[in-house]
Computed example of a mutant assay.
Amino acid sequence: MNPLPYNEPYNNSGSFLFRKSGVYYFVRRVPTDLARHHTTRRISFSLRTRSAAVAKRQAYEIAAKLDRHWHDLRMSDDNLLSRYQRKITPSSDTITQSVGISGVGGASR
């Protein structure tokens, strides 16, 4: 049984890294609920470095970007919460009222 409530990280080290011929690669599974947004089930590419420290820093930054991206996708797909969101369409009247402008299009005396 997986002690984590999700299938991350991809490898047991928790770093989303693997090494092939001395070069580090980033690898991460696409979450099943977001699979329809991606063309593959796994994101994997070379970090073009042989340095473990550089690879670890890059992998951390990429994983954080992916987490933010996936969070945004989940929130845009969430119909439960969308009914509580206010739909705001900016109009010239509300903009002028919020700024406190009286009389649009000319000087008023």
Rank of each mutant, 00 (worst) to 15 (best):
M1I: 14
N2D: 11
N2M: 10
P3Q: 08
L4C: 07
P5W: 14
Y6Q: 07
Y6I: 07
N7K: 13
N7C: 09
P9G: 02
N12T: 11
S13T: 13
G14V: 09
G14Q: 06
G14C: 09
S15A: 06
S15F: 08
S15Y: 11
S15R: 10
F18T: 02
F18A: 04
S21Y: 15
G22H: 15
V23P: 02
V23M: 08
Y24V: 02
Y24A: 00
Y25N: 02
F26H: 03
V27C: 08
R28N: 00
R28T: 00
R29S: 05
P31R: 05
T32C: 04
T32D: 05
L34M: 10
L34C: 11
A35F: 12
A35Y: 10
H37M: 04
T39L: 09
T39G: 03
T40A: 06
R42L: 14
I43L: 13
F45D: 03
F45I: 05
S46A: 09
S46T: 14
L47G: 01
R50K: 15
R50F: 10
R50P: 02
S51R: 10
V54K: 14
V54P: 06
K56Y: 03
R57P: 01
R57L: 08
Q58G: 03
A59G: 02
Y60G: 05
E61A: 12
E61I: 12
I62C: 00
I62E: 01
D67V: 07
R68E: 06
R68Y: 08
H69Y: 06
W70C: 01
D72T: 12
D72S: 08
R74N: 04
M75S: 04
S76K: 12
D77S: 14
D78C: 14
D78I: 15
N79Y: 03
S82A: 13
S82C: 09
R83P: 03
R83A: 06
Y84L: 11
Q85R: 15
Q85C: 11
Q85A: 09
K87Y: 15
K87P: 03
K87A: 12
I88Q: 06
T89Q: 13
T89L: 14
P90N: 05
S91E: 09
S91P: 01
S91I: 11
S92C: 14
D93C: 02
T94F: 05
T94R: 12
I95H: 10
I95A: 15
I95P: 01
T96Q: 04
T96Y: 08
S98D: 11
S98M: 15
S98Y: 15
V99D: 01
V99H: 05
G100W: 00
I101P: 02
S102N: 12
V104W: 09
G105V: 06
G105W: 05
G106Y: 08
G106W: 05
S108T: 13
R109V: 05
R109W: 01
R109H: 08
